[in-house]
Amino acid sequence: MVTAALFKTGASCDEPSCGATVFDCYSPRVNYAQLLFPDFSLILCGYLVCRYTALNRTVWAQVETLVYFFFFPVLLFHSIIKSPLNIGSATSFIGAGWALGLAGIALAYSVPYWPGLGRHIPARQHVASAQVAFRFNSFIGLALADRLAGAQGLLLIALLIGVSVPLMNVGAVWPMVRHAERGLLGELLRNPLIIGTALGLAGNLLGLSLPVWLEPTVSRIGAASLALGLMAAGAGMQLSALNRAKVLALAVLTIRHLLMPLVAWGLARLFQLDPVQTTILLAFSALPTASSCYVLAARMGYDGAYVAGLVTVSTVLGVLSLSFALGVLRAL
């Protein structure tokens, strides 16, 4: 594994060249709310620009499409291929990521069976919104991992995204697949995140690398994807329609922002992850849900407006859950 760049927010080493990783210098005094501010300020900028300028939702829908289908896959590909990958040393980390995803899916679909909740959970709303409990906002995850651990953080989060996207897409699409225009396999094979990750892994394992002259272009595309992706997440926020199923909303958001970080904390110890892997897994577990949740729900004939409301609240709650995961659970 590559060594993380020294990150000295709230902590320091005597010498920058001491060879320590970012979390050898970890201090519980790190202000994670301050660390998260740049990313969430971009989300706020996207929201304000979309609501109060001529750059309305129509414009940002196109930006989101560009980022999702081009910029973001390029970033994933570059993050994976540029750093030598030791699959053997990452086995436990990948296993923890899969276990976290499976736990989230199981919790999400168990909600109607929670004592006293069954009669308050509309079945159709649940099928559409269960995905909110376990899917994640990759834009925020990549931006945060870069700030937390540089190249090593990007490599680890890219691995998690690569192994989790197929699993969580199956978990989200399977209950709604009868309404899809394409079959489940087609949905997965056409997913740009899966394609970018698969190509990056193949290139890495084959020992390939990008030509030096192409590196600056690809790096700038990756940087643009993070800023535009975060602003697009803010532009897509809505609060309408949440009154239709308040108990369901509370349940899925509790899973996303409280139970998932707790599960990740337990898995990090079960799989004996190192400090950097633990922190990236905790950050991953506490991310806001995917902004594309409402797109999927609407495309398959469900209540997209309700899911959009959940996405909006989840984006705001991400500040709290990430601070909880990184500032409280990480220190235990």
Rank of each mutant, 00 (worst) to 15 (best):
M176H: 01
W114G: 07
A227F: 07
A133F: 07
L282F: 08
S323P: 01
G88D: 14
L310S: 04
L250C: 13
N86E: 15
G150L: 03
G104H: 05
F77R: 03
A133D: 05
R244G: 11
G309S: 08
F324C: 01
A99I: 08
L160R: 09
C13R: 11
A283V: 04
G234D: 08
E64W: 00
T65P: 00
P192M: 05
S17H: 14
G183S: 11
G318N: 05
D274E: 13
L259Y: 02
N56L: 08
G171K: 06
A172Y: 02
G171N: 06
P84D: 12
T58E: 15
V173W: 10
P122D: 09
A54T: 14
P84V: 09
F7W: 13
R182M: 10
I43N: 03
R299Q: 12
G118I: 10
I81P: 03
L167K: 04
Q131L: 01
A251P: 04
A103P: 04
G150K: 04
V63E: 02
I140T: 15
V177P: 00
C293I: 00
W213T: 11
G101D: 11
A11C: 15
F324H: 02
T279Y: 09
V173S: 12
S12K: 13
P84Y: 10
L206V: 08
L228P: 02
Q238S: 15
N169G: 00
E15N: 15
T58V: 13
L320C: 14
C25M: 09
R124E: 15
T312Q: 12
T279F: 11
N31E: 11
A305N: 14
L142H: 11
D24M: 03
A143R: 05
P112C: 08
A128H: 07
A158C: 10
T58D: 14
T279A: 14
V276I: 14
E64V: 00
R124K: 14
S240P: 01
I43T: 03
G19I: 02
A283I: 04
L102P: 01
V2I: 15
F72T: 06
T254Q: 04
L206H: 13
N56W: 06
L259D: 02
M168Y: 03
L148I: 08
V132P: 00
T278I: 03
L253M: 07
A325F: 07
L329Q: 01
A158Q: 10
Y113C: 12
G318M: 09
G162K: 08
L148G: 07
G236M: 04
R190E: 12
I140R: 02
L214Q: 08
A123V: 11
V49H: 04
T21F: 12
N169H: 00
R147A: 13
F72W: 09
I195N: 03
F271M: 08
I87Q: 11
K246D: 02
I157C: 10
A130W: 05
V2W: 11
F271A: 09
L296A: 00
S291M: 09
R330S: 05
F134S: 03
L250E: 06
A90K: 14
Q272K: 11
V307Q: 01
V111N: 05
L317N: 10
G153I: 03
L154I: 06
L193C: 09
G196M: 06
V22N: 10
R119E: 15
K246V: 14
S292P: 00
T289E: 00
A99N: 09
S17R: 14
L322M: 13
V127N: 07
R244F: 06
F23E: 12
T289I: 00
E215R: 13
G88Y: 12
